Each structure stands twice: as C-alpha cells, then as structure tokens.
Computed example of a mutant assay.
Amino acid sequence: MSVELITKDDLQHFRLVLLNDIKELLAAKTEPSKEWLKGTEVRKLLKVSHGTLQNLRTSGRLYYSKIGGTYYYRYKEIMKMLESGVEAYR
C-alpha cells in the first residue's frame, strides 16, 4: 500500500492555481455568438423593460435596424452604450 503525504505547501499551491483558474473564467468576456440581437435578448442582457428599451431606441442612445416588424441591435453598440456610463439610461 502506497501512501502519499500532502503538505501545507502542496495545498497552498493548489489553492493559488484554483483561484487563478476561477479568476480567468470570471474575467472572460462572454460575447454572444451572434452579432445582432433581437429586442427580447437585449432586454434580458440589459435587464430592462420593453418601454425602457423603446426609450433608448427613440432617444437615439441605442442604434438599431428594423427588418419587417423586428428590431435588431448590434452587440457592439450595446457594449459601447454600457461603457459610456449611466447616462444611457436617463
């Protein structure tokens, strides 16, 4: 029967590696696979109501394209609006 001893240094090293892996996962940007998002997807992403999304659209704070009766929003434009600050919601 083989016995391996685990030292405090081994545990400390494991802890650091695990923390670094978790930080990398959390820091990774999760961009959708689509360049264009529908209104329902944008509302979920921004956690806003239909009316708020309409206000962002009509005030010109969020650019869109309309095809048929469906509004599409470019993901990069949404991120740009978010990075510009809270003013986008006012």
Rank of each mutant, 00 (worst) to 15 (best):
K76T: 13
S59G: 03
M1N: 09
E24A: 13
Y71E: 01
T70S: 11
N20M: 09
I67W: 01
V48F: 00
P32R: 11
L25S: 07
H13L: 12
L25H: 03
F14V: 06
V17A: 08
Y89M: 13
K76Q: 11
I67L: 11
L16W: 02
H13F: 10
G68W: 02
L37P: 01
A27Y: 09
L18S: 06
Y73T: 00
E77D: 15
K34C: 00
K23L: 10
D9A: 12
L26F: 10
T7I: 01
Y64L: 07
D9L: 09
D10F: 02
L18H: 05
T40A: 12
T58V: 13
L26T: 10
G85I: 06
N20P: 04
G51P: 04
E83D: 14
L82T: 09
S84Q: 14
T7K: 02
L18W: 05
D21L: 12
T70C: 09
D10M: 03
L45H: 06
E35D: 05
R74V: 00
K38Q: 10
N55W: 04
K44M: 07
R90T: 08
K34I: 05
L82A: 08
G60R: 04
R57E: 07
A88D: 06
L26Y: 09
Y89L: 15
S33M: 07
Y64S: 12
V48C: 08
K8E: 13
Q12N: 06
K80E: 11
S84A: 15
V86Y: 07
D10G: 01
L16C: 07
L11Y: 08
R74I: 02
Q12H: 06
K76C: 03
L5R: 14
T40W: 01
Y64D: 04
T52R: 15
L62N: 05
K66F: 00
L45R: 04
I67E: 11
A27P: 04
K38R: 14
S59W: 03
Q12P: 03
N20T: 12
L16S: 05
K29D: 14
M79L: 12
Q12V: 13
K80A: 15
D21Q: 14
R15M: 10
K47I: 07
K76W: 00
Y75K: 04
T30I: 06
G39H: 01
G85E: 04
T70G: 04
L82I: 11
T7P: 08
F14G: 05
E31T: 12
K76A: 15
R43C: 04
S33C: 02
L53K: 06
K76S: 15
R61E: 00
K44S: 09
L19P: 00
L53W: 11
V48D: 05
T30A: 07
G85N: 05
M1S: 14
D10S: 01
S59A: 10
Y75P: 03
G69P: 00
L25F: 10
S84E: 09
G69M: 02
S49Y: 06
D9T: 07
E77K: 12
Y72F: 15
L62C: 08
L56E: 00
L25C: 07
H13A: 15
D10N: 08
S33V: 04
I6R: 12
L82M: 13
Y71H: 10
D9E: 13
T52H: 09
E4C: 00
H13R: 13
E77F: 03
E41A: 07
